[in-house]
């Protein structure tokens, strides 16, 4: 049900590595829609791992997966729309 210890450890390492990537992008001061999109995708992938594996929604009724993953994607879609709205014309 909760997977193996090895899988959890691998996911944790990937999650921390992805966090380092986000931090490095921030330290470089990189900006623009492509960077924002990359960071949004990284956040979605990390969130998906937490939802499906750590919260074990992979084995939950499909409605719960749809609600939580849908929340993640919808939230970033709204952030993306707002980001686009704020771009210089």
């Amino acid at each position: 049900m909760h997977g193996s210890a090895a899988r959890a450890t691998l996911l944790w390492l990937v999650l921390v590595a992805a966090t380092l990537l986000t931090w490095a992008v921030g330290e470089r001061g990189s900006a623009g829609p492509h960077v924002a999109a990359l960071l949004a995708v990284v956040s979605c992938v990390k969130g998906g791992m937490v939802i499906l594996d750590f919260m074990v929604l992979r084995h939950a009724p499909p409605m719960w997966r749809a609600l939580t993953l849908g929340w993640l994607v919808l939230t970033w879609a709204l952030i993306g729309l707002a980001y686009w709205n704020g771009m210089p014309t």
Partner: peptide, 13 residues
């Protein structure tokens, strides 16, 4: 989970 959005949104992007 919510911090995984909060960190890039408020601190980085």
């Amino acid at each position: 989970l919510v911090w995984l959005i909060l960190f890039p949104l408020v601190y980085v992007i």
